[in-house]
Simulated assay, not measured.
Amino acid sequence: MRLGLATAVIGGLSLATATSADATPGGPGVSGTVLSQTTFGGKDYVLRRITIPPGQGTGWHFHDGTLYGFVEHGTLSHFDSDCESDGVYQAGDHLTEPSGADHVHIGRNLGTTDVVLDVLYVLPHGAPLAEDAPNPGCDFQ
């Protein structure tokens, strides 16, 4: 599935020069690089590689479109706005993040090695990659 997703995305997108882009408000060292992007049918398709160092996270946020992710390396711990774990994803796992302000979440690296994610953002044209959200009252960031 990962190969099919990557092939479809890369094959169908006009490759852009890889550019650095900050992750949604995250801890020190959290970074993202846009690998490819295009617009088709009123939607922006952005393929991005995100790296989260040990002990860091993405910050609380939501997306205006659906995200499809693949864990290249490490283990991603994912939490919802009820401060509950809604998934732990290890290398080789896929995850989907639904759209909307009612899906506030945070991704955290609770391990000892970098988490590296390949993420396909499917967003309404012109939407930001993520919308910041306040901590919903969880004891962690």
Rank of each mutant, 00 (worst) to 15 (best):
P128S: 08
L110V: 04
H94R: 09
V115S: 00
A101M: 08
F40A: 15
E84M: 11
V119N: 03
I10G: 02
P128F: 15
G87E: 03
T24C: 10
H63R: 10
A21M: 13
F79P: 10
S31G: 14
D132C: 01
H125N: 15
H78G: 05
F140R: 11
A8R: 08
G87P: 06
D80G: 15
P124M: 03
G11L: 01
D118Y: 00
T17Y: 06
H63S: 08
G65C: 06
T75N: 04
G41D: 14
D80L: 06
G29N: 09
T113D: 12
G11P: 09
T24M: 09
F70T: 01
Y68L: 15
H61A: 03
E97L: 07
T7I: 12
M1N: 06
F140W: 08
L35N: 02
P25K: 14
N135Q: 06
T112F: 10
S85T: 14
G57A: 14
P25N: 13
P136E: 04
I50C: 03
Q56S: 14
V88G: 04
A8T: 13
A18I: 06
V30N: 14
G26C: 02
V119Q: 05
G100T: 08
T33K: 07
Q141T: 10
S99P: 08
V88T: 13
Q141N: 14
S85K: 12
F140K: 13
D139I: 04
M1D: 07
T33I: 04
E84N: 13
D44N: 09
D86Y: 12
D118G: 04
D93A: 14
D114H: 05
A16N: 11
R108E: 06
T17D: 15
V104L: 11
E97P: 10
G12C: 08
Q90E: 13
D80P: 09
I106M: 05
V34F: 05
A91R: 03
E131F: 06
T51F: 01
P28K: 09
V104T: 09
D139E: 15
G65D: 11
G65V: 02
I52R: 08
Y89D: 11
C83P: 12
V122M: 11
V122T: 02
L129V: 05
V46N: 00
R2W: 08
R108A: 07
L5V: 10
T75L: 01
L3E: 15
V88R: 15
S81I: 01
L117K: 04
S77Q: 13
G87N: 06
